[in-house]
C-alpha cells in the first residue's frame, strides 16, 4: 500500500504531480493577488480532476477502492467545495483549501502505491459509491472545519470580511453542512453491512472510529449557544478532536496492523 517516496513515471503520476505543484503554487500566488491564487487553484483542480478521470478509465471502476484513489479524489474535491463554500455558505479562507488539497494530494502523488486491483466481491455493491462518496464529501468539508477550528483555538475568533461569516461561525456552518453527509455515510455503511455480513453493526475498528468522529461533531452541535459564545476556543477543540478522529478512521484504521478488521481491503 505504501511505497518509499518516489515519482510515478506514468501519465497519471505526471498529472498528480502537476496537480500537487499547482496547489502548492497557489499559496504564494494568493499572496500576490487573490485572483491569481484562485486561478492557480483552479488549474490544480483541472489537473487533479484529469487524474481522477484517467484513473477511472484505466481501472474501469470508481476511484474509491484504496487509499491512493481515495486521497486523489479528496484532493480533486477541494476546489469545487471551496467555491460552493464561499458562494452558498459565506465561508472564505480559500488559501487554506488549496493548502489542504496539496497536503491530501501529496501521499498519492509520491507515497501511496498506484497498483490497481480489481474490485473484490465485497465492494461490488450499489451502496459502494454512495457510501464512500458521502464520507469523502463530509471529510473534505470537515478537514476545513478542523483547520479553521485549530486556528480558532490558537488565535481566537476573527470577523469575516464583507459577506463572509466569522471564523467561529464558519466552523459551525461547515460542521452543519457535513453532518448529514457523515450520517448518510454511517447509515449506508450499516445497511451495506447487513447485506454483506449479516449485521448492520459489526464492532469493526473502522466502524467504531467512524462512530466516534460522528459523535464528536454531534456533541459539538449540542453545546448550548451560551456556552459556545462564552468559550469559543474550548468548543472549537471538539471540532479539532473530531477531525483527528477522522484521520484515525481514514488512515490509522487502515494502515495500523492492530486495527485489522472487515475493512482491511480499504
Amino acid at each position: 500500500m505504501i511505497a518509499a517516496l518516489a515519482l510515478k513515471p506514468t501519465p497519471l503520476g505526471a498529472l498528480m504531480l502537476t496537480a500537487l505543484a499547482l496547489h502548492v503554487l497557489a499559496l504564494p500566488a494568493w499572496a500576490v493577488r487573490r485572483a491569481m491564487g484562485q486561478a492557480v487553484f483552479a488549474a490544480g483542480f483541472v489537473a487533479a480532476a484529469a487524474a481522477v478521470v484517467l484513473r477511472t478509465v484505466q481501472t474501469g471502476q470508481p476511484p474509491m477502492q484504496n487509499l491512493f484513489e481515495v486521497f486523489l479524489l479528496l484532493g480533486a474535491m477541494m476546489f469545487p467545495l471551496s467555491l460552493l463554500g464561499r458562494r452558498a455558505l459565506g465561508v472564505g479562507a480559500e488559501a487554506l483549501d488549496a493548502a489542504l488539497a496539496a497536503a491530501v494530494l501529496f501521499p498519492p502523488a509520491l507515497v501511496f502505491s498506484a497498483a490497481a486491483q480489481p474490485l473484490p466481491p465485497a465492494l461490488q455493491s450499489p451502496l459502494f459509491v454512495p457510501h464512500v462518496a458521502a464520507y469523502l464529501l463530509a471529510y473534505v468539508i470537515l478537514a476545513k472545519a478542523g483547520a479553521l477550528a485549530a486556528a480558532l483555538v490558537v488565535a481566537g475568533d476573527r470577523t469575516g470580511e464583507g459577506k463572509l461569516v466569522s471564523r467561529a461561525q464558519a466552523v459551525r456552518t461547515l460542521v452543519r453542512a457535513a453532518l448529514p453527509l457523515l450520517t448518510a455515510g454511517l447509515l449506508l455503511g450499516a445497511v451495506w453491512g447487513k447485506l454483506a455480513w449479516g449485521d448492520w453493526w459489526n464492532w469493526d475498528p473502522k466502524e467504531l472510529w467512524s462512530l466516534a468522529s460522528w459523535l464528536a461533531f454531534v456533541a459539538y452541535l449540542h453545546v448550548p449557544p451560551g456556552v459556545a459564545a462564552r468559550r469559543p476556543r474550548l468548543i472549537g477543540a471538539i471540532v479539532v478532536l473530531g477531525a483527528a478522529l477522522i484521520l484515525i478512521t481514514l488512515l490509522w484504521a487502515n494502515l495500523a496492523q492492530r486495527f485489522a478488521g472487515l475493512h482491511s481491503y480499504a
Binding site: V165, A168, P180, V191
Partner: peptide, 29 residues
Amino acid sequence: FALLLGGVVWRMWVRLGPRGGANAPEGTP
C-alpha cells in the same frame, strides 16, 4: 435510520437555511 437521516438533513440543511443562521447569535446550533 431513515428518521435519523431525515431529521439530521432537516435540522442541518433545511430548517436554518444554507448559511446556518449566519445572523443568529454565535453558537446557535
